[in-house]
């Protein structure tokens, strides 16, 4: 597995800072599962977080302070011992090569997605159980040779290729690759092989389509 395109460092810092929306964190975690390079960088953003925490002035705790915490720790002690606490991040194994953080949202895998046709050759499925604030997170299936309408971005957009590949002005993106595009960039990805390209796309603002035909698609995209 060779990942060629990674999220921008600025995006990884935003992830480590915990300032990305839920959809971004899902997409980035899906990339991180496969990408040791970016995992290491995220670890570094957390080292930075730790150092920044050290620069903060103390806000002394009022009231019981430590005693209150100790009392809580002792009551919890009765039931599950600290050593038995389950990890929050435990992930189920995946079957069809889907990142496990994503598999949890697609119980039937990619075969079982309930697609909605947006335009000829383009289908989408919005992950409605992910809270993306003003943005969105969706799967897009792009038929071979199909071009996604030209669009600009009000904010940031991340695209993770799950299957197949696409090509845009920047290069060729294959499974595991992330395209990290921001405002002012107009890009026109095209599915460039005989296989349908399936991507996960997260935004933090609504997409803006630039020509009038594409604007007709706006209501469908801009959920």
């Amino acid at each position: 597995m060779s990942i060629r395109h990674h999220p921008d460092d600025a995006t990884l810092v935003a992830y480590g800072a915990g300032s990305v929306n839920e959809g971004f964190s899902l997409l980035l975690a899906a990339h991180l599962e496969r990408c040791p390079r970016c995992r290491r960088r995220v670890t570094e953003t957390e080292v930075l977080g730790g150092e920044l925490l050290e620069t903060l002035e103390d806000s002394p705790l009022s009231g019981g302070g430590f005693d209150a915490v100790w009392a809580r720790v002792c009551t919890e002690e009765q039931s599950p011992a600290p050593a038995a606490a389950p990890s929050q991040t435990t992930t189920p194994p995946t079957t069809d090569g889907l990142p496990s953080v994503l598999a949890a949202h697609l119980p039937g895998g990619l075969e079982d997605v309930r697609w909605r046709t947006l335009a000829p050759g383009i289908k989408q499925h919005v992950l409605r159980d992910v809270d993306s604030g003003n943005g969105s997170i969706r799967l897009l299936a792009i038929a071979p040779g199909t071009t996604i309408p030209q669009h600009g971005h009000g904010g940031s957009e991340l695209t993770l290729v799950l299957k197949g590949s696409f090509m845009d002005q920047i290069g060729r993106f294959q499974a595991g690759d992330v395209a990290d595009v921001d405002v002012g960039i107009h890009h026109q990805p095209v599915a460039d092989t005989s296989e349908t390209c399936i991507c996960l796309i997260a935004t933090d603002e609504r997409l803006r389509f630039s020509d009038s035909l594409s604007r007709m698609l706006q209501p469908f995209f801009g959920i």
Binding site: G18, L28, G49, G50, Q88, T89, T91
Partner: peptide, 22 residues
């Protein structure tokens, strides 16, 4: 420590999930 604080903050203040890799 920062990670624990950050994750709790996202969960409780922003009421969103934060996806991490184990």
């Amino acid at each position: 420590v920062y990670r624990v604080a950050r994750n709790l903050r996202i969960d409780r203040l922003r009421r969103q999930r934060f996806y991490e890799v184990d």
